[in-house]
């Protein structure tokens, strides 16, 4: 199908984009990489009156400094996947990239767009939650503010980003020497939506797991932090932690079914991924 008609404005800076958002509010959608938005427009799932193109405002930098990794909103999935700074400071993110759609989509799609969309089956929201990233938001009326990933994803395609706000960046704490990070996903074909996926980090000291943070995606309306799994794994050896965390997942997750995969199957697959993720931390 073809998109419904819309007006088009090309922002020349982040401040200009925020001014346009302030002017048009709910009638506007920001266009970054467009890899979800244009599909939604073509399917007429979305019919905004005006698109504000932020593709030329800069804000694509990837910077590691002072123990933080800052991914500016327009950093593409492909650029994140190629970045040595990302591989060193947040290896989970580098592991996530091959799971994101297909190469041609990774060349255009952006981390800011993915976070702002809040697709519950997407990789970046879960990674942000697992690593407790901060999302940097900005608006003309209220300036900049930071929201932790735990407070950012509110519901299905619903985030703390207000109608007059834009995502400027996501900031991740750089990994510690004894920290292990893993991102795993099960899909029917490479690049398909996740049946279920997990982004997990933990400390590994003396063969024991502590501070496990496992965020699952494709299991509900938002990415879900598996707190019971974390409790069950605390202080255990890798093998015990893998089993205990997987067993505890039934108290963390209640995945919905769909015509191809029922909820019980999804939970079972989540347990498989939980075990694999913890075991991979010792590899």
């Amino acid at each position: 199908m073809k998109a419904a008609a819309f007006r088009y404005a090309r922002a020349t800076s982040a401040a200009h984009a925020q001014a346009l958002l302030a002017e048009h509010g709910e009638d506007a959608r920001l266009l970054a990489g467009g890899q979800s938005l244009l599909a939604a427009l073509n399917l007429r799932l979305s019919e905004p009156a005006i698109l504000i193109d932020i593709g030329r405002i800069g804000h694509a930098a990837i910077e590691a400094r002072d123990g933080r990794l800052r991914l500016s909103a327009l950093a593409t999935h492909a650029a994140i996947g190629r970045s040595a700074a990302v591989a060193e400071a947040a290896p989970m993110l580098a592991q996530a990239v091959p799971h994101i759609a297909h190469p041609a989509i990774r060349n255009r799609g952006t981390i800011g767009g993915s976070l702002a969309l809040g697709d519950p089956a997407a990789e970046w929201p879960a990674c942000a939650l697992a690593l407790n990233a901060e999302i940097v938001l900005a608006s003309a009326a209220r300036g900049e503010r930071r929201v932790s990933a735990e407070d950012f994803f509110l519901g299905l395609y619903s985030t703390a980003c207000a109608a007059d706000e834009m995502v400027l960046a996501a900031e991740f704490p750089a990994t510690a020497p004894n920290e292990r990070q893993v991102c795993l996903e099960l899909a029917r074909r490479r690049g398909d939506y996740a049946l279920v996926g997990v982004a997990a980090s933990a400390k590994l000291e003396g063969g024991r797991i502590s501070g496990l943070r496992a965020a699952f995606f494709g299991v509900g309306a938002t990415p879900v932090l598996a707190r019971e799994a974390s409790r069950a794994a605390e202080g255990a050896t890798v093998a015990e932690a893998a089993r205990a965390a997987a067993d505890a997942l039934g108290r963390d997750l209640d995945p919905p079914g769909d015509p191809t995969t029922d909820g019980a199957t999804r939970l079972r697959l989540a347990r498989v991924l939980m075990r694999r993720a913890v075991e991979a931390m010792a590899a």
Partner: peptide
């Protein structure tokens, strides 16, 4: 809607979905 890849072209040296670029 970006699934089939029949529209893949090169934009500034990188492949893109031609249906997902205005």
């Amino acid at each position: 809607h970006g699934v089939c890849g029949a529209c893949t072209v090169r934009l500034d040296g990188e492949t893109v979905r031609g249906c997902l670029v205005l």
